[in-house]
């Protein structure tokens, strides 16, 4: 059931989204996700976590078993707001008998974009994604990368406030991926909200303001990259000499000792200083002390290792 909820200033405000297939397959088990206006939000998680199902529910392609929430301040499925949303699905299939320009015009017309704007937008966007020369070529002649570029262009034909992209860099070469990143940053600077579902964590890390990690149908973590990585910083102290002389004392403090590297987890500078004192007292030479911030990949691996993923509380304000 999609109910009317309080009108919020979130661009995307998903509350308690459930999707059950049949009676036993629980694809989503109460997802809460909030995306502020003008930010790039990344959704990540392992295969089968429910990411695409969630995106499809947002775009009314899949009917939720239960869901509350809003898109652009109106209940999910609101026609007026869908007209202000752009969408690129994963593994899209476009009619092969259309040309690139015809496809953009067709989808934009279904999106109620006036004819006068359609032609201008198509020309501008085809140029923006580097497909101008292919505008009058049938789509069945396109490569996968070209289809992806065209798909991104079609998602922007209605000049949307919210852009939902499911694996937008799928099939693109490194140059193409960089182009997409630049385009998304342009959209952000133009005040658009981008909701990104991608398995390429390094890309999400480069451009996302906030991310959510979906595991087994639940949001395991959600926040800005700083918020997520703050808890997972560690210090690595490299030294030379015989590590055996300090092994007992280091392990007694609950610190990990590798091959001439001491790893102090968390923001525990006191413990770092204690390790430095210990090394000096033992006459060992300190070569470097480096703070190490976890990558999204590290965090995801850590989350997956922790099987007790619990729902994340909904923030009060954007």
């Amino acid at each position: 059931m999609v109910g009317i909820t309080e009108m919020t200033n979130w661009a995307v405000d998903l509350i308690d989204v459930h999707k059950t297939y049949g009676k036993t397959i629980h694809a989503l088990r109460g997802v809460n996700i909030q995306v502020g206006r003008g930010e790039i939000f990344g959704l990540l998680g392992p295969n089968g976590a429910g990411k695409t199902t969630l995106v499809k529910i947002m775009m009314t392609v899949v009917r939720p078993t239960h869901a509350l929430g809003t898109l652009l301040g109106r209940p999910m499925g609101h026609r007026g707001k869908l007209a202000r949303t752009g969408y690129l699905p994963e593994d899209h299939r476009f009619p092969g008998y259309l040309t690139g320009a015809q496809l953009l015009d067709y989808y934009a017309a279904l999106g109620k974009v006036p004819r006068s704007r359609r032609k201008a937008n198509a020309a501008r966007l085809l140029d923006r994604v580097g497909m101008s020369e292919w505008a009058t070529t049938r789509i069945d002649k396109y490569s996968k990368g070209m289809l992806q570029r065209l798909g991104i262009a079609q998602a922007l034909m209605n000049d949307p406030e919210l852009i939902v992209l499911d694996e937008p860099t799928d099939g693109l070469d490194p140059v193409g991926r960089r182009d997409v990143r630049e385009l998304l940053l342009e959209l952000k600077s133009a005040g658009k909200t981008v909701f990104l579902n991608s398995h390429l964590l390094s890309e999400l890390e480069m451009i996302c303001d906030r991310v959510a990690i979906l595991v087994d149908g639940l949001v395991a973590r959600q926040g800005t990259l700083n918020e997520l990585t703050e808890e997972t910083v560690e210090y690595r102290i490299a030294f030379s000499g015989d590590a055996g002389v300090i092994q007992e004392k280091v392990e007694a403090l609950g610190v990990s000792l590798g091959a001439n590297v001491i790893t102090v987890s968390g923001h525990d500078t006191g413990k770092v200083n204690a390790m430095i004192d210990l090394l000096r007292a033992a006459g060992l030479s300190i070569e470097s002390v480096q703070p190490h911030r976890f990558s999204l990949e590290d965090i995801l691996v850590q989350v997956l290792a922790d099987q007790s993923a619990t729902p994340v509380a909904r923030p009060m304000h954007p």
């Binding site: 392609v61 969408y87 009619p95 279904l110």
Partner: peptide, 18 residues
């Protein structure tokens, strides 16, 4: 069948039309 093919219909269903 082509219209309702997975991946083909998604874009259309996301348009403002019931």
């Amino acid at each position: 069948p082509a219209f309702t093919e997975r991946g083909a219909l998604d874009v259309v269903l996301a348009k403002p039309i019931n």
